[in-house]
Design a protein around this nucleic acid. Structure first.
Lengths: 240, 240
DNA sequence: TCCTATTTTTATGTCGACAAATAAAATACT
DNA sequence: AGTATTTTATTTGTCGACATAAAAATAGGA
């Protein structure tokens, strides 16, 4: 008797469409993890999420399984699921993969881009330039990721794009840790580097695109490393 | 009481330990998909699996979510989940990524390998040589994958290893489609190529390892392409 | 006081059932 | 007869509840 209200209205009072629940929860949580609103190591309570999203534990659980498959959360069997820790020991491997993906995706973009891609890439670059202009480090991190991901899409290789997405988001987490010291240095340089990359992509100049991507990647890697060593003290309390 | 859990023996009558269910189902299904025991495009019935594994639909579902995250199955919203089709249109992209991962992982292995890695790699190579000796194409496909994955592990970069795993398994699916024509040509050549790669890895010779990996990858790519064009007729009934 | 064993608590893993959505079947209508 | 519409059937998405495992709390003993 309680559930008969569905007959009357075409919409559930819940506001959720059937089957949209998992995807929604997944997106929200993913964002909160990547933006460090959920700290690495912090526990994830299914029941709490269940109340928050007004859903049963089942769809929550499926969203968590997806996040676990991506490595964003870690499930300790039978006991707890926590936001995955940032693995500082494997940072060199991360840098290596990140640099390679920067290069490969930019190369492919220069090779396979279509005219309609340029427009979208340009839009993200404009957003990045604005963020740099007002020295908004958080926005810079976010729009930089969108910009390079759009380039990767123009390269049209889903294997690379998927790995790159993972890497960029992991990088976002790391950069957030030190975002205070990110806007300080040379935001203008990043903007011009982006512009050069776009030019090379437009010109189908693969080798130049490769070189610029590598330089850009190394720039960012240095930035991260500098940030880490700068306030190494803050690492003391982080569990590895 | 102390003997509470010992009442019916230490094992549940089910045979499943708590929490082992999902992982088990995931492994089994993954294997069946990769070995084409489940054909691309064939529907996956949750209820049927539920009966087969003597589990409720919930753990089955979680296993399916994991498989979907890997792209091995495709869920049509609200209607059906099917084994993902092999995407022949994106084959060039697949070859590109596969070749790059062959190269990168072999390079890293030559750089980072430890003495204990060589032993494991050698074991898989022995298994591959045996399969080649008796011209067992199915075993060759499987052990070749294990061999290269072990090399990747010796390279110690989990980002590459994960992507490579995905690519090798996708390649396994494709090769299975044409496995009849795989054992025919030059199994001995593959064996010696593998041996050369091991030698380069042992000698920490990065550039040679790279070159051999590239040659090996191109060899395999040509093999796949030849197989596909050879019996192109069989593609007629495959949905793309 | 400290260590150990038992109880309590809390969150997970699993289950059976219901509801919504879509395809297939059956029926009605022109 | 052929098409449109309703009905049925099957399968997915979601729910609430129970069972179980591990940590936290408590009690007991040296």
């Amino acid at each position: 008797m309680a559930e008969k209200r569905d007959r009357e209205g075409t919409e559930k009072t819940n506001g959720h469409r059937r089957g949209s629940g998992v995807g929604h929860v997944y997106e929200i949580l993913r964002n909160e993890i990547v933006e460090l609103k959920l700290e690495p190591g912090s526990p994830i309570d299914e029941l709490q999420l269940s109340k928050r999203f007004s859903l049963s534990r089942t769809p929550i659980r499926e969203a968590l399984v997806r996040l676990a498959a991506e490595g964003l959360i870690t499930t300790l069997p039978n006991r707890a699921t926590i936001v995955s820790n940032i693995d500082f020991l494997n940072l060199p491997q991360f840098f290596d993969a990140l640099t390679l993906m920067y290069r490969v995706t930019t190369r492919l973009a220069a090779s396979n881009r279509r005219t309609e891609d340029i427009e979208r890439i340009g839009a993200f670059q404009a957003a990045f330039a604005q963020a740099a202009e007002r020295k908004d480090a958080l926005a810079m991190i976010s729009t930089n990721r969108d910009f390079h991901l759009e380039i990767a899409k123009a390269g049209r290789n889903r294997y690379y794009t998927e790995l790159f997405t993972q890497l960029l988001d992991e990088g976002r987490r790391i950069l957030r840790l030190y975002y205070s010291s990110f806007g300080d240095v040379l935001p203008r340089q990043y903007v011009t580097e982006h512009e050069d990359m776009i030019a090379a992509i437009v010109a189908h100049d693969i080798e130049t695109a490769d070189r610029l991507a590598r330089d850009h990647a190394e720039q960012i890697v240095r930035q991260i490393q500098a940030s880490i060593t700068a306030d190494a003290r803050t690492n003391a309390h982080i569990s590895i």
